[in-house]
Amino acid sequence: MRNVEVLERFKNYIESEKRYSDYTSISYFDDIHNLINFLDKEQFGDILTVSPRIARFYTATLHENYSPKSIARKISSVRSLYNFLVREDVLEENPFLDIELPKQEKRLPKFIYPEEIESIFKSIDTSSVLGTRNYLILEFLYGTGVRVSELCNVKLNDIDYFQNLCLIHGKGSKDRYVPLHNRLINEISDYVITTRKDLLKTKENKYLFLNHHGDNITPRGIRMVINKVMLESGESLKISPHTLRHTFATHLLNNGADLRSIQELLGHSHLSSTQIYTKVSKEKLKESYMQAHPRAKKK
């Protein structure tokens, strides 16, 4: 079996069975092609001839050019490929199974403060069709904490206007419902009745958020929208869709929401993924204390 056949089978697996997003799929194959380029350069053969010794050599070369986080991702991607090949009885063992991932410094999620996000919302000109859509995109991301790929996959019939809920199609085919506050549900309703029809023109489309051509918007398109909003706002902040997801979780925790509820809202499989926000909250508490306590402020 040649590399092309291996990659085609793995592609079918992650897209059809695992239901990974296009963005995740592209990341996987970028990492796998990095391994293939290494094998070609060193004349080590193809994917199916990789031994544990070659796997260790490849990992060592990654340390010369990549950060620990990037190395961990690249190894994780190729390890998933070989797990699949073992499962399909193409190989007997995974050559990357015993490769240790580099230790990474755990960075706190970046978030923005309530007054900052209010300032961003106020800066958006909603007198235009695209301005109204852009406002709702930010409102939806901040109001639900969904991933950018999940936002792009929201369809018209996923919105329950009677129960103020939205069905979210999450990672790994895991669906969940997220609540929509009254202001957000009203804005969605107004957008669907007016703005979305202007974007749609004569086309037919089942997705909620559309680009200016009337097609469903992509994750890249969402990032461009946020960059445009930030540029026009005059704010020096740099934010991404994931920043709004972190902000959503941090603001909920700071205002008394319990960790389990936040886990469900974010669609985290494990509570450990959500617990990082308690660290963010403690850091904010510590910062407030250091700035406010009379003895702490003294030099």
Rank of each mutant, 00 (worst) to 15 (best):
F38R: 07
F38Y: 12
F38P: 06
L39Q: 12
D40G: 07
D40V: 01
D40K: 15
K41L: 10
K41F: 07
K41A: 12
E42H: 09
Q43T: 01
F44G: 06
G45C: 12
D46G: 14
I47G: 11
L48W: 03
L48C: 10
V50N: 09
S51C: 13
R53N: 06
I54G: 12
A55V: 02
R56C: 03
F57P: 02
F57E: 15
Y58F: 15
Y58C: 09
T59V: 09
A60Y: 03
A60I: 06
T61K: 12
T61G: 13
H63Q: 13
H63P: 00
N65L: 05
N65H: 07
Y66E: 01
Y66R: 07
S67W: 03
S67P: 01
K69N: 12
K69Y: 11
K69S: 08
K69W: 06
K69E: 10
S70H: 06
S70L: 04
I71N: 02
I71D: 00
I71E: 00
A72Q: 02
A72I: 03
K74A: 02
I75A: 01
S77G: 00
S77H: 09
S77M: 00
V78P: 02
R79M: 03
R79S: 15
S80H: 04
S80T: 05
L81S: 05
L81M: 11
L81C: 05
N83G: 05
F84G: 10
F84T: 12
F84I: 07
L85R: 07
V86D: 08
R87F: 09
R87K: 14
R87A: 10
E88M: 12
E88P: 08
E88A: 09
E88G: 14
D89E: 15
D89L: 11
D89Q: 10
V90N: 04
L91P: 00
L91E: 06
E92V: 15
E92G: 13
E92K: 11
E92I: 13
E93S: 12
F96D: 06
F96E: 02
F96T: 02
L97D: 05
L97G: 04
I99P: 04
I99K: 10
I99G: 01
I99A: 04
E100F: 08
E100N: 14
L101K: 03
L101R: 13
P102K: 05
K103A: 15
K103N: 14
Q104I: 05
Q104W: 07
E105Y: 00
K106H: 01
K106T: 08
R107T: 06
